[in-house]
């Protein structure tokens, strides 16, 4: 498990547009850079990010080698009901991490 920083409001009004910010510790090694010994470092990137709300995909992004280390993604979402937000990052070398946050909608 790597470190993540998530900003998700704990509560919202029904129909409110909320802003979500995600940051994850990841080197995003491009696969083009030579290392100290001159050989090219193998690619190691996050390829896909998804956000599910009560198991329904509400946001997704493809990531590419040009994305900086520790990808920071922010997006907005309209929420109508209480539930669980699940954030998943998947990538090279079998990388997969999911974090969840509850949100109470009144």
């Amino acid at each position: 498990m790597v470190r993540t920083l998530l900003r998700v409001p704990a509560t919202a009004r029904s129909g409110e547009v909320i802003e979500i910010r995600t940051l994850i510790a990841h080197p995003m090694e491009t696969g083009f850079r030579p290392g100290a010994d001159g050989t090219v470092q193998p690619r190691d990137i996050i390829r896909r990010f998804t956000c599910r709300f009560n198991n329904r995909e509400v946001f997704a992004a493809e990531l590419h080698p040009a994305v900086a280390a520790n990808p920071y993604l922010t997006f907005t979402l309209r929420v109508e009901e209480s539930g669980i937000l699940a954030f998943t990052w998947e990538g090279d070398n079998g990388f997969s991490q999911t974090e969840t946050r509850p949100i109470a909608v009144a």
């Binding site: 470190r3 920083l5 940051l23 994850i24 280390a69 520790n70 920071y72």
Partner: peptide, 8 residues
């Protein structure tokens, strides 16, 4: 603090 990667 939630966009500063140093906080990781």
């Amino acid at each position: 603090d939630l966009s500063n990667p140093g906080m990781l």
